[in-house]
Amino acid sequence: MNRKLKTTVAAVALALTAGTAQAEGNLSIYHWFEYIPQELLDKFSEQHGVTVTMDTFDSNEAMLASLKAGKMGSYDVAVPGDYMVEIMAADGLLDTFESSELSNFGNIMPEWVDVGFDKGRKSSIPYQWGSTSFSVNRNDYTGDINTLAMIFDPPEEVQGKINVLDSQGEVLALASIYLGIPQCTTDRDQLKQLNELVQNAKPHWASFGSDVAKDVLVSGDASVGMIWSGFSAKAREEGANIEYAYPKEGYVVWMDNVVLLKDAPNRDNALKFMNFLLEPENAAAVTNFAQYTAGVSNTTELLDDAVKNSPESNPPAQPVGTFVMACSEEVQKVYDTIWTNLKK
């Protein structure tokens, strides 16, 4: 009898909890790989009684393709980079919100509110920002590394031991910076130069890979690896004797943003999640995990010292980084041809 009673209580309790979870609903996130700590998702889930599911992608373009191929309406939020926010907004993939709908909106650092890719933050909030450059294994090469020649005209010691990101936008942006030509140039001679530069550099490259960018540096397969700043810091923590370069010609900076997707099945929970990520404590948790820099005020005191003082998170005053531009259709077509020629 007693046992029966216990079972009944348990069943009722289960039914009740299940009921609550259903009432509070779900949240479906489309995010980069290795970019948010599981504990943070659990914390949100617990605080708001929301079931969180997450899928991951490894490039802005892959995310866009998947959304366009019919995934719209199944995710609530996604995390595109700067230029991709602009593209998605132009394609009508983003919903808008009022700043009053997020009680923590004021936590966004002033310089990250009126950004070019989303003026006044109508559809997005800052997630993290960082840079794209490359790291060099100091056991293999001891000379000056602060030049993009390490990738595009590499010294003999590292030839054939270079991994570049499998990301057309970042590779061609860095190549343009190295040549000193504007991104998305329409000048034919400059485009030819760009094509020749990457063609001539390719024999020195061992591989193209984004998700493996950290691993090849840690294992020593690559002596030079094009990489994102925080990913490089993680590689260093995992024991690679590498140094992150700030090339004198310049490098790429980017900001990833949490966007509210159009037709989000759980719009309210999406806004709750965005508000949650604007809490300094939670933004700092992401930074401590991914080792990039938050766009939220008052996170500095909450950071681990190693992260706060890492060379990857503290770029020098000069040179400054540049955002990747979204090219016009006409130029993009030439870029695609250059990329196909590069990998044919």
């Binding site: 373009e61 892959a62 866009l64 499998d166 057309q168 061992a206 890979g209 695609d336 196909t340 990998k343």
Partner: peptide, 26 residues
């Protein structure tokens, strides 16, 4: 080709993948 070949040279599969997942978007 991607993982062992270093994604350096397209094979048919990766060429097709690039049209859907890469910048080309064709």
């Amino acid at each position: 080709p991607d993982l062992l070949g270093g994604a350096k040279n397209f094979m048919i599969g990766s060429l097709i993948e690039e049209q859907f997942k890469g910048n080309a978007g064709n």
